[in-house]
Amino acid sequence: MAAIAISARRRVRALPAGPRYLAGRLGQAVLALFGVTTIVFFALRLSGDPARLLVPEGASAADIERVREQLGLTDPLWRQYLSFLGGAVHGDLGFSYVQNRPATELIAERLPYTANLAVAALLLSIVFGVTVGVVTALKRGRWQERALMPVVLVGQAMPAFWTGLLLILVFSVGLRWLPSTGYDGPLSLLLPSVTLASLSAAAIARVTRGSVLEQLSRDYVRTARAKGAGTGRIVLRHLARNSAIPVLTVAGLELANLLGGAVVTEVIFAWPGLGQLTIQSVSARDFPVVQAIVVFASAVYIGINLLTDLLYGVIDRRVTVGGAA
């Protein structure tokens, strides 16, 4: 993960920060996005037939053909692809085969749930991860480190379905404090966000620790120490600012991942977010919805990446001024 710290510094230096740079990156992103949607478009059509999943069990081959025609799947592939592209340019990503509603509308409905969960999980994992990271770095080799690291790793070493069910068993079935599944009110947010956070907290803790350790070895910290500054002040004054970039990078990546939908967690907690929509529409070969999700997830990811890049400059000016630190 130290590598990420390196990459962060490198990227900041490579940031001419002009609108030209931004436009260039956006252009590349659109190009890449186009490539991926094309691949997904054709790969999806290789692997299964939505009509077969839509008809009742006793249907005949003719019934299936009827549904295929209805969905426009009997057209040649290139025509289907052109009409998809044509629609996509105008922001029309098609109608869901299953629910017969605009794919974009379905995504818009699920997005608040996913966003809510993602942000809550990110907050929890940042708070927990950064705390653990800083403490284990400062207390390197002491009992605090030995006690804390395994705790973080437990979360990372358990599959989400397992963590989630355990939490439900303890807090919903056993103690009856929190709702087990679904969404009604902020309380419902707690268990799924802890489940998700347990996965990303470890990554954040690790980066924070690495980054703080790196800063600790720098001259300015030693100077501050020599002047008699306490550990607490050093951490707050200097380390926080200088260690923030790699942490931010990882946090950005995690957020993008979370927004793409946390499939397993959403299934366990019956959370009506994008993750469930993804798995349902892929399973049903609901092509328009899957395509729309890919476009959306990629756009979000690219957007967040750009944003974190821009934020580097805002948060750590010293680095931008030529890495003088």
């Binding site: 992103a29 490539g35 991926v36 999806l44 692997s47 990629s298 979000v300």
Partner: peptide, 26 residues
């Protein structure tokens, strides 16, 4: 180099399970 790295970004952005199901299905 830049285009390759943007492609890397986009692959990273495709939801894991979507990719997984596609691969296993295909």
């Amino acid at each position: 180099g830049a285009v390759i790295m943007r492609l890397v970004d986009v692959v990273l952005s495709v939801p894991f399970f979507l990719l997984a199901i596609l691969v296993v299905a295909v």
